[in-house]
Amino acid sequence: MHMLLLLLLVPCLTFISADDCTDCVNSGRLWCLQTSQCGGTTLACNTSITVPLNCPSLPRFAYNDEFIRTEIMVLTTAAQNENPQLCFE
């Protein structure tokens, strides 16, 4: 009876709690992208993450259309122009 209970609990114990993907991967385990769960080193998952750089994250900065149009477009245009000052004026 105890062995049956142990066999039922083993699959539940393969997922170890972790706050996020980075903590999970830094501790030597795999992060499952589909389930957003941390598992052992042999996690059965279609897409597992093993490198912290590959962990999904929210963008740190929002897209700003005015900044792109007034700053970035001017800079990229000036970089390709023979007289860049014309773009800044």
Rank of each mutant, 00 (worst) to 15 (best):
P59V: 10
C24N: 00
W31E: 01
P56L: 13
Q80D: 10
I68R: 00
F61Y: 08
I16T: 11
T42E: 13
T47S: 15
T77Y: 07
M73E: 13
D20L: 02
L75K: 12
I16Q: 11
N54C: 10
F61E: 09
I72G: 03
I72A: 08
T70M: 06
F61R: 08
E71P: 01
A18D: 01
S48V: 04
L75Q: 09
L75R: 11
T35R: 02
S36R: 05
N81L: 14
D19G: 00
I49Y: 09
C55G: 09
T22I: 08
V51L: 14
P52G: 08
P56F: 09
Q34I: 05
C21H: 03
V25Q: 05
E71Q: 13
A18C: 04
E66R: 10
M73Q: 12
P59S: 12
L58E: 14
A78P: 09
F67D: 04
T76R: 13
L75F: 07
R60A: 11
T41C: 09
L33R: 05
M73N: 11
L75E: 10
G39H: 00
R29E: 01
L33K: 04
L75Y: 06
W31V: 03
R29K: 14
N64A: 05
T76A: 07
S36N: 08
P52N: 10
Q34T: 05
D65I: 05
T47I: 14
V25N: 06
I16P: 06
A44L: 13
A18Q: 05
C38H: 03
S36C: 03
S48R: 04
C24W: 06
L53Y: 12
N54T: 08
S17L: 01
A62Y: 05
D65L: 06
G39N: 07
Q37L: 10
L53A: 15
I72P: 00
S57T: 15
N64D: 15
C24D: 00
R29L: 06
C32A: 05
A18P: 01
A62I: 01
T77C: 11
N81W: 12
S17R: 02
D65Q: 11
A78G: 12
T42S: 13
Q80Y: 10
N81K: 14
T70R: 05
V25S: 04
V74Y: 02
